[in-house]
Structure formats: structure tokens, C-alpha cells
């Protein structure tokens, strides 16, 4: 059973991202369980890639650390299997198309279903190329997420009409990473989506402070935070779990506050 429907049933969703295997898979396992406890509604696990072209320096370095530590796709699947014995938080994989394709797309999706990965986010697979993955995603019950960017404009209608699960709205131009200022464009992007389809919209790229989370949750259904968490992991290494917990609690609260106000 895909756990995605529960992600947005609990008010505004807080969605943290971490790179699997940074600094080790043992820590990643603890982080997932603890972030779920701290209120995360969906946890994005990055399968590290040697050449992450959509990532800024913070996540590039995390990918690098994870690969040097010997992280592989198989070991990540095994870890998710262990997590699932005690924890049913919805889990997404975020990775590039080559690790999926080279692993064998069907085998990859089958393993996702077996261990309990609900969602797949692939930043270098635009709408035009989604047939590369979609048939196997459908076959094995993995929700393939569509992304829209500030440059998408007239493409939003086409992308949204076929989107499933939720839409990942890229807040800013460029790569992932913390930003001082977020564009006002996102609100408009979300409006365009909702005109076409009643589907949840989560915003990612650049969000790091509770104020930003609050601001985004005014018009988004979910807030995705990656680099800020990965930065904490990079700073504290093996001792990062309590620090990440504290941060996730604060961000989750900020995201959901907005929802409670609206109610």
C-alpha cells in the first residue's frame, strides 16, 4: 500500500531531505526514525550520485561523503527494509536517472515496492522523458513526482494535468541550497497548477528558516527542506541526530502553524 495519501492529510506537510549514507547508513536509519517522530510527513532520501547537476555545494558534498563511505543503491534498499520493521513514515527516493536506469528500471521499482518506498523524485527527468520510468512506477505502485520551475510558464498546464501524488514546485532558479530571498513567483505557479488540477503542491529549493517555511505554507501544501538539514549533518557528523531532530521540530511547527491559523 502506497503511504503517499497520508502525507497531506495532516495539515501542511513538512518534508525533510537527507542524503542516504551521509555520514553512514546507520545514522541515516536513526535520522529517518527520529525525523518521523519529530513530525516529518514524508522523508526524502537522496540516493547519492557522482554528478548531481541539480544540487548546490552542500548536497554535492553530502553525496560525495556518502559515496566515499561506500553507500550503494542495494545497501540503501536494505536500510529502508530495516526501517520499515518499526516505522511507517512515507518515504521518497530522490535520485538522478542514471542510478535508476543502470540498476535496471524494473528491478529498481520492484525493490521500491518490496521494501516500502512510496515516492520517486528524479530532477533530470522532465515531462518529455517520463515514459522512461512511468510504466514501471505504475506497475509497482511507486508514485513518480512531476516538477515545475519558475521557467515552466506555459508548460505548467501540460505537466500538472498528468501529475500524480503531488507537484514539486522549484522555488528558485539554479540549484538546491539555502537562500536569503525566495521569489514571489511560486504563489503564482501554484495558482496555475490548481487551475488545472486539484493536487497538493510542495515547495523546495532554498528554504531554511522557520519564517520562510511559514511564508511558503501560506500558499503551498508542503514545504521541502534539504540543504539546511544536510548542512547540520555535515557540521555534526555522527553526532547530528539530536541537532537534526531539534531543527525538524521547529520547522515542522512553523509549517503547520500556518495551517492551524487557516482552520
Amino acid at each position: 500500500m502506497n503511504r503517499l495519501p497520508q502525507v497531506f492529510s495532516n495539515g501542511k506537510a513538512f518534508i525533510p531531505f537527507i542524503t542516504a549514507g551521509d555520514p553512514s547508513l546507520e545514522i541515516t536509519e536513526q535520522l529517518v526514525i527520529n525525523m518521523a517522530e519529530a513530525g516529518a510527513d514524508l522523508i526524502e532520501l537522496g540516493i547519492p550520485f557522482s554528478d548531481p547537476i541539480a544540487e548546490g555545494p552542500v548536497i554535492q558534498e553530502a553525496d560525495n561523503r556518502a559515496l566515499i563511505a561506500g553507500t550503494t543503491t542495494d545497501k540503501i534498499f536494505a536500510m529502508v527494509g530495516r526501517i520499515r520493521q518499526t516505522c511507517q513514515v512515507p518515504i521518497a527516493f530522490m535520485t538522478y536517472i542514471n542510478p535508476i536506469f543502470t540498476y535496471g528500471t524494473e528491478r529498481f521499482m520492484e525493490n521500491c515496492q518490496t521494501v516500502g518506498v512510496d515516492v520517486l523524485i528524479v530532477p533530470d527527468m522532465p515531462y518529455e522523458e517520463k515514459q522512461e520510468l512511468l510504466p514501471d512506477c505504475l506497475k509497482y505502485g511507486v508514485t513518480l513526482i512531476s516538477m515545475i520551475a519558475p521557467t515552466s510558464q506555459q508548460r505548467i498546464r501540460m505537466i500538472a494535468s498528468e501529475a500524480q501524488g503531488f507537484i514539486y514546485c522549484v522555488s528558485s532558479m539554479g540549484v538546491t541550497g539555502m537562500r536569503q530571498e525566495l521569489s514571489n513567483n511560486v504563489e503564482h505557479m501554484i495558482k496555475s497548477v490548481k487551475e488545472v488540477k486539484d493536487i497538493p503542491c510542495a515547495i523546495g529549493f532554498g528554504i531554511s528558516t522557520p519564517e520562510q517555511a511559514k511564508q511558503m505554507a501560506r500558499f503551498a501544501d508542503g514545504v521541502i527542506v534539504g540543504s539546511a538539514i544536510v548542512n547540520i549533518i555535515g557540521q555534526y557528523g555522527e553526532d547530528c541526530v539530536p541537532h537534526v531532530m531539534e531543527y525538524v521540530r521547529g520547522m515542522n511547527k512553523a509549517t503547520k502553524q500556518q495551517y492551524e491559523k487557516q482552520q
Binding site: I53, A54, I97, P123, D124, M125, P126, Y127, E128, E129, Q131, E132, M147, I148, A149, P150, T151, S152, Q153, R155, I159, V170, M173, G174
Partner: peptide, 21 residues
Amino acid sequence: MSKGHYGIHGGQYIPETLMNA
């Protein structure tokens, strides 16, 4: 839909941000 193929090779596997460009 998918464009720019040479046999099974080619395509446009890039982030959405660059698609309009």
C-alpha cells in the same frame, strides 16, 4: 514528446528549469 533520438540514444534528460531554454 521525447525528441532527438539516434536509434535508442539521445533524448532530453535535463531539469525542468532548463526545458524552456
